[in-house]
Every structure is written in structure tokens, then in C-alpha cells.
Design a protein around this nucleic acid. Structure first.
Length: 403
DNA sequence: TCTGGGGTCCTAGGACCC
DNA sequence: TCTGGGGTCCTAGGACCC
């Protein structure tokens, strides 16, 4: 189709899904001309996975989330670059700012993708297709990286369309073409259908979105549950009530915050494990205090050497952001497991049921009077602000990481 | 040296309350 | 002395997303 036809076809398609192409890899190589024509993988670490791979690396079968060991086997000549999240975040902010100049209705899904509702921008800027191309040109000029855009009448179809547009393209799916576009797709392309659900659906002989569309709702729901079944049936017919919702602000905090870490090597040493639980508790509590939230439920996560994973949680009487309370609870949960030197691969600590701290101020003040730990945390926060995260930590963490 | 780290949502059973 | 029904909270596990 000509640009003029695409502009006309996009008239009833106010939803844009913009997705940066191989984002981390593109950012990592854009200032490195020497890497322009070689396979590049962003990722690494000791037991890490691929975060992003450029298209040259993908030709060898390298994919996101693949274990690095496998990626290196598939493409030994690839250059591996460790991620620089500060840079990614900065580039992302600029790109999102470009989006907001088009419309206030921007929903960022992650650092590298966003939905835009441009209904209110058409008069000023032209058709949704025209806006998509303008954005792509501006982002390339300013950031030196490419992106792809799906243009459709619903969020779900726009998201699928951007995938078809990759790399460096635009795909418009007008309303009258939605089912023709959707029905040939593999079931796994649908939002919410991952590996397990794909297997489940395939076992029922459902391979494509069209197959799902022509399966009775009750059958789907029996297979994958009431909620997902209903969702899939609607999506398969292009029905999607979701609207573009700008990200929640400070008034609506995250629902949970957590940290986990895979050990460099599996360990069965309770001292090592408890020290890690303390470090993670301090990390989570610090982030909660920065976000001015407190939480009631402490969840400990343990992954064994064979990758099986369990969780144990305890809900406290009052919400807390106090490192020592979180650590004590997590440590109790760990001890209660009664592990007989089982080898662990990972531990994690997560706080759920988060509330704005203003809503629990009274309890925190009382808690602080009793324990004194809250004052201790505040002193740590002040010192961290002045001297950096490595400057202050619990005594049992001294001697780690630094001379 | 197979399989990160940050999240969200759903399901299901049992406790508990009215 | 024979068996309610609904709502909410808590816990554990699992699937999925980027």
C-alpha cells in the first residue's frame, strides 16, 4: 500500500504500539561503529541470560531470555556486552518524552515499549499512520535507534501488529481486517498465552487464533480457567475493551517490591544464606522507604539446585518498612523450612500489601519507639544518600565486596 | 556454566465471620 | 445428631510479561 492508502486505512486506528527494535542491543552498539556488523548480545554475568540480541545474533538462533551458555554455543563469535541500565533508562525517558509530545495518553509497558492513544492528535498531526512515521523518524534522528509501530483500533491488535512490523516498520490493521489478521496467528502470539498454555491448547488441537475463535467458550474455560478462557475467546474475535492508561503515579504505589539473587554457586551454608536474606531485606526496605510505602506481608522465596521453587509468607499485624523486622520475619520463615543442608540456587525477599506510608504513620512511629530500628534505618538512608549504597550496611555484611 | 531479576494476576483450599 | 451460603483474608503455587 502507498503511504496515502496507509494513512487512509489508519483513520479508525487510534491506538499505536511502539516497540524499540532489539532495544538494549541497539543502544549498546549505536556508539560503537566497530560493532555495527557483528552479532552482539547484551547480557552475561556468571549464570545469566540473554537480555537482548541484535538481528545478526538472532540469525544464529539467539533469543531473549536464553541462557548465556546456550547463546554462546549458538554464536561463539558474538560480542557480549554487559547491560548499562542507566543508559537504557536515559534513552527510554527521551523516547517516552517524544510520545508525550504527541499525546498525554501514553502507557509505558517497560523501558522499550508503550501504547499511545492518538485520537486527540489527528487534527493537529495527521493520520495515526502519519504520526507513527513521524515518531519513528524523530526517534531515529535523536537516538540513532529504530523502532516498529503497530497501528490498530484496539490495544491487543496494535501490540500484535508491531511484532509483524519488525524490524523498523509500521503495520496498520484497520477494523475490517482484524479477524483476517488474527486468525492465522499461532495461539502463542496472544497476550497471556505462554509456553504452558500453548501446550495445553495444542493438546486440544487448537493451533491458531482462528481455532480458538471457533471453540466453545466453555471448552476453553475448562482447559485454561475461567478468566483466561474468556479473555482468549474475546481476543480471538478482536474484542478488547482495554484502554490506554497512563502509568500510575505516586498516588498508586506498586503492589509489591522484592529482590532476589542467584548465588554464584549453589550453597547449603545457612550462614551464607541468612546473610544474603539480610542483604536482600535491607535492599527491599530501602527501596520501600524511598517510595514512602510500607507492607504487611513478607514472602521468602527459595529455589533449589534442581530449580524447583517454593515460597513461604507471613502477614504481620502492622505494615512495616523496617529492615530488621523484614529480615527477622524472612529469617524465621527460612529457619522454619528446616532444610537439612539442601543446596540452594537462589533466595528472594518480597514485600506485598504495600500502602502509602502516610496511611500507617502512627504504627510506624509507635514501632520505632519500641525498637529503635526505624531511627537506625533513617540514619542508614541519610548516610547512603551522602556516601553511596556501599557505605553503610549491617555488621554481618561487612567484609563483602570491598577491600 | 543450562535456565536473571523485576513485577502482576489467577487459582484453590482453609479459616473465620455473619 | 447432620450439615447453608456468602464474603474476606491468608497461604502456596504457578503462569505470564518484559
Amino acid at each position: 500500500m502507498s503511504p496515502r492508502d496507509l494513512a487512509a486505512a489508519s483513520r479508525e486506528c487510534p491506538i499505536l504500539h511502539v516497540d524499540m527494535d532489539a532495544f538494549y542491543a541497539s543502544v549498546a552498539v549505536r556508539d560503537r561503529p566497530d560493532l555495527q556488523d557483528v552479532p552482539v548480545i547484551v547480557g552475561g554475568g556468571h549464570r545469566g541470560v540473554v537480555l537482548s540480541a541484535n538481528y545478526l545474533a538472532r540469525e544464529y538462533g539467539v533469543r531473549s531470555a536464553m541462557p548465556m551458555t546456550r547463546a554462546r554455543r549458538l554464536c561463539p563469535q558474538a560480542v557480549v556486552i554487559p547491560p548499562e541500565f542507566a543508559t537504557f533508562t536515559a534513552v527510554s525517558s527521551s523516547v517516552m518524552e517524544n510520545f508525550r509530545q504527541v499525546t498525554p495518553l501514553v502507557e509505558a509497558l517497560s523501558l522499550d515499549e508503550a501504547f499511545l492513544d492518538v485520537s486527540g492528535s489527528v487534527r493537529r498531526l495527521g493520520s495515526p499512520y502519519t504520526i507513527a512515521e513521524q515518531l519513528r523518524a524523530r526517534i531515529y534522528d535523536e537516538q540513532g535507534i529504530t523502532c516498529s509501530v503497530g497501528v490498530a483500533s484496539t490495544v491487543a491488535v496494535a501490540k500484535l501488529a508491531s511484532r509483524r512490523a519488525k524490524p523498523d516498520g509500521v503495520v496498520v490493521v484497520p477494523p475490517q481486517s482484524v479477524t483476517a489478521f488474527l486468525h492465522p496467528l499461532d495461539v502463542g502470539e496472544l497476550w497471556g498465552v505462554g509456553e504452558k498454555t500453548t501446550q495445553m491448547l495444542n493438546r486440544l488441537g487448537l493451533m491458531t487464533v482462528g481455532d480458538i475463535a471457533h471453540t466453545p467458550l466453555a471448552t476453553l474455560q475448562r482447559a485454561v480457567g475461567a478468566s483466561l478462557g474468556a479473555q482468549l475467546h474475546q481476543l480471538a474475535w478482536g474484542q478488547d475493551r482495554r484502554v490506554v492508561t497512563p502509568r500510575r503515579g505516586a498516588d498508586e504505589p506498586d503492589k509489591s517490591m522484592g529482590a532476589d539473587e542467584t548465588f554464584g554457586r549453589d550453597t547449603d551454608d545457612p550462614e551464607v544464606i541468612l546473610r544474603e536474606i539480610l542483604r536482600l531485606s535491607a535492599k527491599v526496605a530501602g527501596r520501600m522507604r524511598t517510595a514512602r510505602v510500607a507492607g504487611r506481608t513478607v514472602t521468602l522465596r527459595v529455589r533449589f539446585a534442581d530449580f524447583t521453587t517454593i515460597t513461604r509468607s507471613r502477614t504481620l499485624g502492622d505494615a512495616t518498612d523496617v529492615t530488621q523486622e523484614i529480615y527477622q520475619t524472612a529469617a524465621d520463615l527460612f529457619t522454619a523450612l528446616g532444610l537439612q543442608r539442601a543446596r540452594l540456587r537462589l533466595v528472594g525477599v518480597r514485600m506485598e500489601g504495600l500502602l502509602p506510608r502516610a496511611a500507617v504513620q502512627r504504627q510506624l512511629v509507635l514501632g520505632a519507639r519500641e525498637s529503635g530500628w526505624s531511627e537506625a534505618d533513617q540514619a542508614v538512608d541519610r548516610a547512603t544518600l551522602r556516601f553511596g549504597a556501599q557505605a553503610v550496611r549491617p555488621a554481618t555484611l561487612l567484609g563483602e565486596g570491598r577491600p
